[in-house]
Design a protein around this nucleic acid. Structure first.
Length: 437
RNA sequence: CGGGGUGUAGCGCAGCCUGGUAGCGCAUCUGCUUUGGGAGCAGAGGGUCGGCAGUUCGAAUCUGUCCACCCCGACCA
């Protein structure tokens, strides 16, 4: 992509409304614009990152055998009355009515919709288990939206719902999600820590929330220093096998949020206690028959008896993750994207646009990298060098190739890794084209 | 939902106390100079001062009311 063509409205100054780094940087880097409180338009740069995260989450979900669906954003109030949540959910649920005065709502979550589909179609234990997921928009009318996309009212979420015939099978479904979540976050360049959690409005008796560590996170987190060494991607997981040992491995180390932690109940000596900050980016629940019971989602078991199906639901805040990743990866100059989600892998800075040597070299590098299917953003604007450096640092592409008159005469360019700008290396155009990024 | 705050050009702000017809920096456009970390000079365009009502000869400024947004707390992916 040529920067001269890209819709990228960056801001030099900090917008006053943005208080935390991710919000500030997303606005400044031209990723989002606010539409109203807690509701955003995603501009090309932000949209690309969102899609990248979505793809990783989708890949990991598919690996577990979960199947993708799309449910409506607008739901009938009727099914919520059946489950008993229509009144319970409170003002966070946006209630609307259509021209016939029928009661509708903009879905804050989808247990009711999926349970409704399930009960109308699945009748036998032989069909189970199923795990169905979707990745799309939800709306919760938060009293106080804040922190940009980290706490919006409209948000992009992966939610999935498991259906099993009995408790042990349901536990396996839960464990699959548990492990898949660890993998998702790790692939996004984050350090995930699962923590025992309250089940809140969704209900149930088994639940974990996933916290990622970030210095500017919203809540304090206390955990065993050994968490920092854990790497979910090093595990070779077969989702067909019993995953209990892995889950145990990943829940035995101490971890607690500040409202559950106190120096008196903490089992760790100070030397092993890591105190940091974290952001909640996922939550998984096993809630048994809470909805299947109230909504009559029953299947016939091996003995010919109709029994309510065992369920769980599992959420990942995809749009929130964009903010969380930035919170965990930025410096004073801007964002530092992890390779897995960066909107472009390489930025080419043409220091002197209009200089035939610089232009030619940039064009060559741009075209050849594109031919190698590397996502590259070429700053071909007739701007001053300082503007281009500042912009490239702000949008945080992991690699920067600088082409300037100092080096073009010798056929050389400079390469540096975002975050290590002082460690620029000078190399030939051939080696910059042949190396792997 | 309780408490606090802010709405003036695309962004950041001053002006308001003490009413007299709107200003600064950045951005944008034009020209010249400059050219390796958000350039300099000269010029230009852009605002029904959040909306409505009132007081007044006259309202960005005073009064009332509504709206929007932000911050702190309680709640959440």
């Amino acid at each position: 992509m040529r920067l001269s063509k890209l819709f990228l409205p960056t801001l030099k100054e900090n917008p006053t409304e943005a208080q935390i780094p991710s919000h500030r940087l997303m606005l400044r880097a031209g990723m989002i614009r606010q539409s109203s409180a807690g509701i955003y338009t995603w501009l090309p740069l932000g949209c690309t990152v969102l899609k990248k995260i979505e793809t990783i989450v989708r890949e990991e979900m598919n690996q577990t055998g979960a199947q993708e669906v799309l449910m409506p954003t607008i739901q009938p109030a009727e099914i919520w009355k059946e489950s008993g949540r229509y009144n319970d959910y409170g003002k966070e649920m946006l209630r609307i009515s259509d021209r016939h005065k029928r009661e509708l709502l903009y879905g804050p979550t989808h247990e009711e919709v999926i349970t409704d589909v399930f009960r109308n179609t699945i009748k036998s234990y032989k069909d189970l288990p199923y795990n169905l997921y979707q990745i799309h928009w939800k709306f919760r009318d938060e009293v106080r939206p804040r922190f940009g996309v980290m706490r919006g009212r409209e948000f992009f979420m992966k939610d999935c719902y498991s259906f099993d015939i009995d408790k042990s099978s349901a536990k396996h479904s839960y464990n699959k999600m548990f492990m898949a979540y660890l993998r998702c976050y790790a692939r996004l360049g984050l350090k995930p820590i699962p923590m025992q959690a309250d089940t809140g409005a969704i209900g149930g008796d088994l639940s974990h929330e996933f916290i990622v560590l970030a210095d500017t996170g919203e809540s304090e987190v206390y955990c065993d220093v050994d968490w920092l060494k854990m790497d979910p991607l090093s595990l070779d997981i077969n989702y067909e096998n019993n995953l209990e040992q892995y889950v145990e491995e990943w829940t035995k180390l101490y971890a607690a949020t500040d409202n559950k932690h106190s120096s008196t109940n903490c089992p760790l000596p100070d030397s092993r206690l890591h105190k940091g900050r974290g952001i909640e980016v996922g939550h998984i629940f096993y809630f048994g028959t809470k909805y299947s019971e109230s909504m009559g989602a029953k299947v016939t078991n091996v003995n010919g008896l109709d029994i309510p199906v065992e369920m769980g639901s599992y959420g990942i805040g995809v749009s929130r993750l964009v903010g969380a990743i930035i919170e965990a990866n930025h410096d004073d100059a801007g964002i530092i994207w992890p390779d897995s989600v960066t909107p472009y892998k390489i930025g080419i800075i043409n220091i002197k646009y209009g200089d035939s040597k610089c232009d030619q070299m940039c064009e060559k590098i741009y075209k050849e990298l594109k031919n190698k299917n590397i996502e590259v953003l070429y700053d071909d604007r007739p701007e001053r060098a300082g503007v281009k450096f500042a912009n490239m640092d702000l949008i945080g592409l992991p690699w920067q190739i600088t082409v300037g008159p100092r080096n073009t005469k010798d056929g050389l360019v400079e390469l540096c890794r975002r975050g290590n700008n002082e460690q620029k290396i000078t190399l030939s155009i051939d080696s910059v084209l042949s190396r792997t990024y």
